[in-house]
Each structure stands twice: as C-alpha cells, then as structure tokens.
C-alpha cells in the first residue's frame, strides 16, 4: 500500500498522482474501455448470433440501418420524453424534499431516512409495485380515481400508447427522486446562513429568499446532478421493460430498450452495438453542452 510512499526523488513526486489514479483507471480500462472498443468494433460487423456464417465487415451499414429504421427514429423522441419526464420530475420532487428536509421540523431524522425507502427498493421490484398499483383492471390507483369521480373509465396505464411511458416515468421518478433529494439537501446545507440573514435584513420574503439566495447558490449542484441523472436515466432499462415491454406498439421503446430488445430478441449484436454507440454519442452531446456551460468552473 505504501509502495508508492512519496518521499525523496522528484520523479516520484511527479509519478505520485498517476500512481494514485492507476487502480481506478486500470479498473475502468479493463471493464469499460476494453468492452467499449470491442463494442465499437462489433458495430462494424454483421454479427448476428444465430447466423455466424454471415459474419463479415460491413463498415457503417449498421449505423445507416438505424437511421433508416422508423423505430429508431421514434425511439429518439421517446428517449427525449423519457429523460425530460424522469429528470424534470425527479428534480422538482427532489427539490421539494430537500427544502422540506432542510427545515427544522419534528421527526426530521426519521423523515430523512424514510425518504430513502424508494431508493432502497430494487428497481425491478419498483417496476412490479407500480405495475400492480397501475394495473388497468385491478389497480388501486384507478380504484381511487374512480371512487373520487375524477375519471369515469379506468385508465389503461400500461396499455395506452403515450400513457404507458408515463407510467414507467412515474415509477422511476418514485425510485430516483431520493437521490436528488439527498444531493440537493447536501447542497442546501453548504449555503451559509449569513446570506439568508442578509436577505432578511433587506426585507426579502420566503419566495424572494429562495429566488435570490437558494436557487442561484444551489444551481451548480442541480446542474451536475441533472447531468448525472440524464446519463443514468437514458441508460436505464429495467423499469420500462418490465412494466411495458416497450409498448404498446413501441410507444415506450427508448433507445436503451431498443438496444436490449435487438440484442435479446434478434440476437443481432452488430446492430445492437451500433444502437448503443448512437445513444452514447447523443449523451456526449448533452455532456459537452454541460461542460461548455460550466467551462469556467471546470477544474483544470
């Protein structure tokens, strides 16, 4: 462990940061970079597991095939709605949670733990819980809405195009909002009381304190959390897959689901690899946009 004890020679001091980074990066080189390179390579081949005899180099054919595939084009739109819905709602709910949990309320400790219940529930289980809550024939949500007279007919949450995606969004929002809550709570607690005191002296009300103190100071935390969540959400498959199978009629098929279905059902690994490269490329655009925005603050 102390093999790289940093005493003495200057070159050692220079090597130290790299040595310290090496375990993390070695791990990632083996388990991310190597498979990514392998997947990139795969995406240039006609690689269908059920047809090894047809295996051959096809250049960019798989990428072009995606562009000509109406389901791929549809999936980009679905992915955008999916990400916007999940991350937007998680941010809103997480912010509400964080603001409440930051106040000096009774049972704050217990509340802070209870908020984490959904996060501690494995996502597959979340999918089953929400499938059951939203079941079109026997679900409690429909029963309550019918009982309150909000709706006249049961809503077919999982069988209506456009709605089933939102059913999955709600499930993932429930599952993931606590992450936002704790990240934003942490951000809130680093805001010094002095700002609020100053604002109060200036006669700022609750909303103004939020608008002019909390929000701007919390913004950096929000942005980075949003970025991480966008990536994470884009790659998430199990909740929408278990709840909707990407349907009906592919209306809930995100790019990540399309990739999984292509790999699992068509066993077309070449095409699946190109689909996931597309997804990574689209996410890279988001990441670059974020980095540009934060360029001045980026540690260098």
């Amino acid at each position: 462990m102390t093999a790289f004890a940093l005493r003495g020679a200057r070159w050692r001091r220079r090597a130290a940061p790299y040595l310290l980074l090496s375990p993390a990066f070695a791990l990632m080189a083996l388990l991310v970079l190597l498979p990514v390179a392998s997947a990139a390579n795969m995406s240039f081949y006609n690689y269908v597991l059920t047809r090894p005899w047809a295996y051959r180099f096809v250049g960019l054919d798989n990428y072009a095939r995606a562009l000509a595939d109406p389901i791929f084009v549809q999936a980009i739109g679905v992915t955008a709605v999916w990400i916007a819905g999940v991350v937007g709602l998680q941010l809103a709910i997480g912010l509400l949670f964080a603001l409440v949990l930051n106040e000096n309320i009774r049972f704050r400790g217990a509340l802070r733990s209870l908020v984490l219940v959904p996060w501690a529930t494995p996502s597959v289980i979340c999918a089953f819980i929400f499938m059951w809550l939203l079941d079109g024939n026997h679900g409690i949500v429909n029963a309550i809405l019918l009982g309150l007279g909000v709706i006249a007919q049961p809503i077919q949450w999982l069988s209506t195009p456009g709605v089933s995606l939102w059913a999955a969004i709600i499930a993932l929002v429930w599952h993931g909002a606590p992450f936002f809550a704790v990240m934003l709570l942490a951000g809130l607690q680093t805001i010094s009381d002095e700002y609020y005191e100053a604002a109060e002296i200036d006669g700022a009300g609750a909303w103004q304190r939020f608008r002019y103190v909390t929000f701007p100071l919390l913004l950096p935390t929000m942005l980075v959390t949003v970025l991480l969540r966008v990536i994470w959400t884009a790659n998430h498959v199990e909740i929408p897959l278990v709840m909707t199978q990407g349907g009906p009629a592919n209306s809930a098929t995100t790019l990540a689901i399309l990739t999984i279905v292509t790999a699992r059902g068509r066993l077309d690994y070449g095409y699946a690899a190109s689909l996931s490269m597309w997804l990574a490329a689209l996410l890279a655009v988001v990441a670059v946009a974020y980095l540009r925005h934060r360029a001045r603050r980026l540690p260098t």
């Binding site: 991310v32 990514v36 690899a273 990441a287 540690p299």
Partner: peptide
C-alpha cells in the same frame, strides 16, 4: 489532469447495455 477528469465523465456515458455483451467473453 483535466483530460482524466473529463475521462471519468466519458466513462460514465457508456451504457451498461453497451458493455454487457462485449464484457461477457472478457
């Protein structure tokens, strides 16, 4: 240093759905 910090983000970008298939033989 900056490039490596960025590299972390890039690594985070690659979906598990992309990694699982090539990781299997590894």
């Amino acid at each position: 240093r900056g490039a490596l910090i960025l590299g972390l983000l890039v690594i985070y970008l690659f979906p598990a759905t992309l990694l699982v298939i090539p990781l299997f033989p590894i």
